[in-house]
Amino acid sequence: MSDRDDRFVEMLLTHEIAQFLYREAELLDERRYEAWLALLSDDIRYWMPMRRNVKFGEESREFTREITDINWFDEGKETLTRRVRQIETGIHWAEEPVSRIAHLVTNVQLIEAMPSAAEAREVSVKCRFLIYRNRVETETDILVGKREDLLRRDGDDWKIARRKIILDQNVLLSKNLTFFF
């Protein structure tokens, strides 16, 4: 393939991945949780570290570590499913009445396609998110950060195999995290 073809293939893949991420956001915002859960691979790792203020040069200590430390989230599909089920009880008061949520997904960057863009079976992709949550009357949260996803080819579609969520906050400014990133 020519160089030009390579770039074209990569562009198509980036477009496909971005569309996938937008569609995923749509499912969450429309509260179509069943369809959203179906996009998660059975072995998904969903991880959101906490962040410390550290001295310049000590960045290695900025994030809490997965598996060893306490994090905001560090779990898999079973417990994500339970979280959905909890909302669906209709008596999970932190989400009852349900919040109004909008996921803005942007700056989608294809980081790596494995084994290649033309035959991608796995892709790692970065993006920015802005999650707007408004609930009851005036209660409003805006959470902004980065996401690093690993997506896996699944027939004609993709599944999310890993999601690292980097929230740009130290003290969490929201009283809870009852929604998905």
Partner: peptide, 27 residues
């Protein structure tokens, strides 16, 4: 490891139990 996972899912802002407490205290 088991306990750590359980702690995070129970307590704090992402805690499936405490989320409801904070909703009640706040309102």
């Amino acid at each position: 490891n088991f306990l750590r996972d359980y702690y995070i899912r129970y307590s704090g802002p992402a805690g499936m139990t405490e989320q409801d407490d904070m909703e009640n205290w706040g309102y």
